[in-house]
């Protein structure tokens, strides 16, 4: 009898140990990647790296200011398009969950999430770049905005669905019209969810290369005109890492380091906001 219990006890320990081991293993790739990129990239990082343009082949140094500004503009424009739009669609899905339209919209959003980013890039090339006749950062932003939509819609929908119906009824029972109830009671309660979904989707598309290849295209100079080609961090990494020159490889490592740090930072900010703005019902 005692022996049997002992065996069970060891099985328990073994099981628990196995789970922990696998959990730790799953973080190993991330740690390795971080370690390697820091090792390769940190040497390029200095003040000049952030304020200079890339130098021509053969010259030492140079920076990535064009890509930093470009990434900032492209992602900001994409966010401006995707966040309000996605939040409103999410609101519709949570408010009218029984509607047939809501069912089909929900399904399309799921399918949209599965469309490869390169395909989106090509489609925006055909729909925006070709008709307008030139590459532009705006077309890149549109491609990224489409990629951002599904996670924003989903996180908004899920957050708003958790809000108890009686809170909405409390507002309506005070004589508050429906639209004001939504805008001033329901949406503020869902703000943390909408915001964290948005930040996560930003950090996700900030590293996207494929949708930008045929749209924003890249630019070795600083450009702030959204109707002209523009560089971005992932485009710069893609172009320079694929080149044959040691100096350009170094620049690409430095840019990777900056990009990963930005994404890490966004993720941490998201976690903090989620915790701080969490609303108790």
């Amino acid at each position: 009898m005692d022996k049997l219990i002992k065996i069970r006890f060891y099985k328990d320990r073994l099981f628990k140990g196995g789970i922990i081991l696998l959990t730790v293993l799953s973080t190993v790739p991330l740690l390795l990647i971080l370690f390697y990129i820091i090792k390769q990239g940190i040497s390029s990082i200095n003040w000049d790296f952030f304020i200079n343009l890339p130098k021509p082949v053969g010259e030492k140094g140079g920076g990535i200011v064009n890509a930093l500004i470009g990434s900032g503009i492209i992602v900001s424009c994409a966010s401006l398009m995707a966040i309000p739009f996605g939040a409103l669609v999410g609101l519709y899905l949570s408010e009218y969950k029984r509607d047939k339209l809501a069912y089909w919209v929900g399904l399309s959003v799921d399918v949209l999430q599965g469309i490869p980013s390169i395909v989106l890039g090509i489609i925006i090339y055909l729909w925006v770049v070709k008709p307008t006749g030139h590459f532009s950062s705006l077309s890149g932003s549109i491609a990224l905005a489409i990629m951002m939509l599904p996670p924003i819609v989903k996180s908004t929908e899920e957050t708003l669905k958790l809000i108890p119906g009686t809170i909405k009824e409390a507002s309506l029972a005070l004589g508050v019209p429906y639209y004001k109830t939504i805008l001033r009671v329901i949406l503020p309660m869902g703000l943390s969810g909408i915001l964290s979904g948005s930040l996560l989707s930003i950090s996700r598309v900030a590293g996207e290369t494929a949708p930008l290849l045929f749209t924003a295209f890249g630019n070795p100079f600083i450009n702030t005109n959204i109707l002209k080609p523009m560089s971005s961090l992932p485009l710069l990494i893609f172009n320079y890492a694929g080149s044959a020159y040691e100096d350009w490889h170094k620049l690409a490592w430095g840019a990777s380091f900056v990009l990963i740090m930005m994404i890490l930072f966004l993720n941490i900010v998201t976690k903090i906001l989620e915790r701080r703005w969490k609303i108790q019902f």
Partner: peptide, 9 residues
């Protein structure tokens, strides 16, 4: 209402 439902924000 049945359950207290003050506006949480």
């Amino acid at each position: 209402f049945q359950r207290p439902n003050p506006f949480p924000t």
